[in-house]
Nucleic acid binder design. Structure first.
Lengths: 342, 342
DNA sequence: TTGAAAGCGCTAACAC
DNA sequence: GTGTTAGCGCTTTCAA
């Protein structure tokens, strides 16, 4: 199949190729009649506009780079799902990259985006990354950049995140209102921002409801399902009394749940359990695991919409960057539903 | 930041711009000394090759289009994860599109790919799609096309799928070997290829082990968690005796499991349950749900590798298309583990 | 309302 | 080993 260009259409119709170009771009100065015949022969010849040429010439591209740690993590694939939806509805396409949490990959991805002359970049930073030169280069080139979930604060770039403090607060408040009094919180050993925020939410809820903060109820670890199980074993070994557990994320909460059931502890009657992230399994396990929903798809949509606004505004980096902080929501399931009304 | 081109580097070094181009592309006829100085000033000036220009001129692009129904389905995001990994390691980038199971979106996605002059396309067909003109256009343009999981047989295009017949067989055989004799199979009302294959596997296993095929044990429905629950209620209502259930996918199996537990039926002692897909929740529910693993990441990797071979071969559409059929694997968990040894 | 001409930044054939 | 030249297929001024 020979490659068809606007010149072929022009030859066919005996007009100049620039008339054809204008007709295809729906230029106002072209008569409806010409437009019609141009479109018809374009169709007939199976013409397809070459975006490479048009982007090169015009200096405008309609692809935007999206880089995330891994699509194999449901949080990220779900956010990308939301981003792609909105981005596509607005006529852009996405160039996708996974950093696999590696700084080198992330840098390489950004370079590819820059070389491909993307219109802008949406990113969630790799865990490993501690140098941000590749991100500041984007800024220096005046290319729109937006972070979601994992943000580099020092760059002062627009971002979309969720309010982890509020999430921690909601989870804890819910347990308190269900009548639980000695609430364990499992958090991360490392001082990762989001987990510190969830812990702050936990502490603030206790304070607000005049419950004492008991340091022996705050457990620090390498979060995982196994760590959740281990926490429960330790609490029993140490004979710490408790009647509820708020775990920093659902897998850990799941471990907690499994170990409690193994010990024949009744959930939620004797001990309530709540997680964080609202993973798909939370609704399926028995008893259903209460959790905090992170609004993944809305996060992607909000990110894409804010980003489109950035693309359209001229004074991109002049005013203060906009930060959208989404509200997490409490999902109550059987694992904490001790009272009829919450 | 002014845009830097090879001309700027050339001016800086008093050489011709084509020397610069060759140096940057590591052309053998350029002296090491020139290469070095060119690379240095490129770095100094913050030069970035414009891929749009180079692809336009050379006629070769290094982006490949990937279109899937939805990234919000873990199967697809996991396969895309595998594809992206291999594709990137080989210097290509992926342009991503979701069809959301819609024919119109799928068509639009393919058109965008064609306009963007992608080097090739990897696709998993939308449910809604019944016309394949957009796919045959790809072939006509001699652009490499590969299907994974959802294939258009009539197009004779390379593909990567899993052996659903074998999956159905493995699941059923496992139940038989565990001593279950009256095995229910829940399948789809619509005659979707993969589900028909799983059913065939079920029937073949029964035959091989000389178990009778009882039509009243084969249930056709609109699969979902709720349908799984309903199946169990119906079986009890109709007083059909059975001692195991093989459901066409995990969510349905989960419904089965939940309803059995609600009826205080002991799993796996009285009834064994196995699903299909090995969703992440299968390992987390109690009892753990046995399932058939679909090799999502390997599928993505195999698809990407076969695809790269296609890109490199000249006689793309001459010989018979290669079809890779991956073996599913049996994952045994508590829901079917009635005997010590399987 | 349309045409002519220049050029986006690069690759690659052809010179020397 | 390096320079010259001609485009890739478009967009976009300027002129008519």
């Amino acid at each position: 199949m020979k490659k068809v260009t606007i010149h072929d259409i022009a030859k066919e119709l005996n007009v100049s190729f620039s008339t054809v170009a204008r007709a295809l771009n729906d230029h106002p100065a072209i008569s409806e009649a010409t437009k019609k015949s141009v479109r018809e022969t374009a169709q007939k010849l199976n013409y397809r506009q070459n975006k490479l040429a048009s982007s090169l010439r015009s200096g405008h591209s309609n692809t935007i780079g999206v880089i995330v740690p891994s699509l194999d993590v449901s949080f990220f694939s779900s956010v990308v799902h939301g981003i792609e939806k909105i981005i596509n509805e607005n006529g852009y396409s996405i160039l996708l990259y996974q950093s696999n949490e590696s700084y080198e990959s992330e840098k390489k991805g950004i370079e590819t985006f820059l070389n491909s002359r993307v219109a802008g970049i949406i990113a969630s930073v790799a865990k490993e990354t501690t140098k941000y030169e590749h991100f500041s280069e984007i800024r220096r080139r005046r290319i729109p950049l937006l972070f979601f979930d994992r943000v580099v604060e020092s760059l002062h770039v627009p971002s979309v995140t969720i309010d982890d403090h509020k999430g921690g607060f909601l989870a804890t408040e819910h347990l308190i209102r269900q009548g639980y009094k000695r609430i364990v919180h499992i958090t991360a050993k490392q001082t990762i921002g989001i987990f510190k925020e969830r812990l702050r939410g936990y502490l603030d809820a206790l304070k607000l409801y005049n419950l004492p903060v008991d340091e022996s109820l705050i457990l620090y670890g390498d979060f995982s399902l196994d760590f959740g199980r281990q926490c429960i074993r330790d609490l029993y070994l140490r004979e710490v009394s408790f009647d509820a557990v708020f775990a920093l994320e659902d897998f850990t909460a799941m471990g907690v749940l499994q170990q409690l059931l193994a010990y024949k502890v009744r959930v939620p009657e004797e001990v309530g359990v709540i997680g964080f992230a609202n993973e798909s399994f939370a609704a399926l396990v028995t008893p259903g695991l209460s959790s905090i929903d992170q609004q993944t798809v809305p996060m992607g949509e909000a990110a894409a919409e804010l980003f489109l606004k950035m693309l359209r505004s001229e004074d991109l980096y002049n005013n203060l960057p906009k930060r959208i902080v989404l509200d997490p929501s409490l999902i109550v399931r059987a694992s904490t539903e001790r009272l009829a009304s919450s």
